[in-house]
Design a protein around this nucleic acid. Structure first.
Lengths: 203, 203
DNA sequence: ACGACGGTCACCCAAAAGAGTTACGGGCTA
DNA sequence: TAGCCCGTAACTCTTTTGGGTGACCGTCGT
């Protein structure tokens, strides 16, 4: 009897989570709790295989609940739920023994994948997936020259300056620039530099 | 001989951190490394009492470096440095054994307090303080508007487009642009975007 | 051997950017 | 209250950019 406990103080979020978790293959029962106290109170009589818990809750916070739950039952598997960059909460919860965390704005698929994983592997720890939206995976390939030009741009040099530096004519630099814009899908040099940073092509 | 090792791939941040840490009472030596490999390579011959390490680094990431460093020397004390909502990194690093973390935009006082605490108490763990004030070292302070304009630039928008987006005239956007260039020491928008990334002002 | 690609360069042209300057109102602070 | 910074805006003037296009020469792989 595989059961999951969802704990969140917001009824909307709780319900949404309950429904999402219920669609995970293998999950036969999903119970909910509105706060940490409720989780602890019921844990003795009714344990679940996995707990999804909001980091930020009124009363006992998520972190304190993790601590108490684990001291009562060291085998409890807990995944924290978090909105935004709740660094403190997540870090503390993980330090306290939570297995991982999920962004609340993670996709349903994301949530299900993580829950599936956590249920399948009792030793599972921290496989926090953050959706990299669309295009991640197709890293644009710039030539060495193009990278040099992009780097020049990132150092605030004009095309003419880059040309002097690389012993090229300004026109050639412009050609490289145009080509790398195309490859990166950049609309101008500032955009190209930003994309370069985001892709890890320059620093 | 109390020594601290600062590891960050960004020369700007590294230098700023080095200077800030050097002002902590009791710290006699501050060494720096540009990447995880360097830290590990030097650790055998030259250990420090505390390591400040960027979460996000090329090559061995901060997290992997933490793992390896701790498996080599379980007593190593490490504090992660992070920009923005680097949830994955921080959570992983803490799970791997880092003692805590610091936002890169924490104030200098913040940084010093945490380093002092970590050095004073070998058992210290996770006292992540988040302060707003900013200006670590020479970190330029941009106004909200200026950041918005910089972000617009990083998305490849023209001044006119940014203006439309923010309900400003193009001329006003240009004014903000000129001012933020001055603050960042940028020679053009591409340079400004690069510096924004290097300082962690945009992503 | 042909084609694709990369590196080099040139020319034209419209649009954008950047520098300099001025200005006004609001808010905070010394 | 005077000063300073911020946000807003406009104006001028010069420089730079970016797009389009065409071209020549290697190298590589098919």
């Amino acid at each position: 009897m595989t059961s999951v406990l969802v704990c969140d103080d917001s009824p909307l979020a709780r319900e949404a989570l309950r429904r999402a978790v219920a669609t995970v293959p293998g999950v036969e029962r999903v119970t909910t709790a509105a706060n940490g106290e409720e989780v602890l109170r019921r844990w003795g009589a009714d344990r679940s295989d996995l707990v999804l818990m909001d980091v930020r809750m009124p009363g006992l916070g998520g972190v304190e609940t993790v601590r108490r739950l684990l001291s009562a039952d060291p085998g409890a598997r807990i995944i924290m739920l978090t909105v935004a960059e709740d660094l403190d909460g997540v870090a503390l919860a993980v330090a306290a023994g939570a297995r991982g965390y999920l962004h609340k704005d993670a996709s349903r698929a994301e949530l299900r994948a993580t829950v599936t994983q956590a249920l399948a592997d009792p030793t599972w720890r921290l496989a926090p997936r953050r959706l990299r939206s669309a295009e991640m995976g197709a890293a644009p390939t710039l030539t060495a020259r193009e990278i040099q030009v992009l780097e020049g741009m990132s150092h605030g040099r004009s095309n003419a300056e880059i040309g002097r530096e690389l012993f090229l004519s300004e026109d050639t630099v412009k050609t490289h620039a145009r080509r790398l814009f195309k490859k990166l899908g950049a609309s101008d040099r500032a955009h190209a530099v930003a994309l370069g940073f985001r892709w890890g092509l320059v620093r």
